[in-house]
Amino acid sequence: MPSPLPPLPSRALLAATVLAAVLTGCAPAVTVDPAENAADPGCAPAMLAMPEGVGEHERRETTSQGTTAYGDPTAAVVRCGVTPPGPTTDACSSVNGVDWLIRRSEEDGSLWTATTYGRDPAVEVVFDSSAVASSTLLVELGSAVEQIPAERRCLALEDALDAP
């Protein structure tokens, strides 16, 4: 004679436990060093608004406050609370109303860093361009980053020359 099934609440708890084990066992948390100002209260709305995925990469748990990551293997790491960049001659791109300073890594040509310009706290995204296009990534992160109000904008050289 087969053993009777456990009562319904026990079966639901068992199913939830198995599901949680499967979901948490898929990909370990990504180890990310927090930014120096990761505890800045301005980071909370932006980090809570981060999308569940960028491109074809799902959001992953990280080990630090004010951070998130996408992809397995990791395609992009987001850190809020980096020091806001000051005036610079670095290339600046405006993507759907968010200004980003974008720099290519000297060590690995497929790694790029994009840092918000004119927002405090600043958000930094380190990404592998062979895994996710900057155009996709920055567009999809834009609405979350906009939770931090812009205080300044990038200027083109001709705009700066026209200033009084």
Rank of each mutant, 00 (worst) to 15 (best):
3 S>T: 15
5 L>Y: 13
5 L>C: 11
8 L>F: 13
13 L>F: 10
13 L>Q: 15
15 A>T: 11
19 L>C: 06
21 A>N: 12
22 V>G: 06
22 V>W: 10
23 L>G: 09
24 T>I: 09
27 A>Y: 05
28 P>W: 01
29 A>M: 10
31 T>E: 03
31 T>F: 07
31 T>R: 14
32 V>R: 00
32 V>N: 01
34 P>D: 03
34 P>S: 03
35 A>S: 06
35 A>R: 08
39 A>Q: 08
40 D>A: 09
42 G>P: 03
43 C>Q: 05
43 C>N: 09
45 P>I: 12
46 A>W: 01
48 L>I: 13
49 A>G: 14
53 G>K: 15
54 V>G: 06
58 E>H: 15
59 R>W: 13
59 R>M: 13
60 R>S: 04
64 S>H: 00
65 Q>C: 08
66 G>K: 00
67 T>K: 01
68 T>C: 13
72 D>H: 15
72 D>F: 10
72 D>N: 13
74 T>F: 10
80 C>T: 05
80 C>L: 06
82 V>G: 08
85 P>I: 07
86 G>N: 12
89 T>K: 13
93 S>T: 08
95 V>Y: 03
98 V>D: 07
99 D>H: 02
100 W>I: 04
101 L>R: 04
107 E>W: 11
109 G>S: 11
109 G>E: 08
112 W>Q: 12
113 T>C: 07
114 A>Y: 01
115 T>D: 06
116 T>A: 07
118 G>P: 04
119 R>A: 04
123 V>C: 08
126 V>C: 11
127 F>Y: 14
127 F>E: 03
128 D>C: 03
130 S>M: 08
131 A>E: 15
132 V>L: 08
133 A>M: 05
135 S>N: 03
136 T>D: 12
137 L>N: 09
137 L>P: 04
137 L>K: 03
138 L>V: 04
140 E>H: 14
143 S>I: 12
147 Q>Y: 04
147 Q>C: 08
147 Q>L: 11
148 I>R: 02
149 P>D: 09
152 R>E: 13
154 C>Q: 00
161 L>W: 00
161 L>Q: 00
161 L>T: 00
162 D>I: 04
163 A>Y: 10
163 A>Q: 12
163 A>V: 05
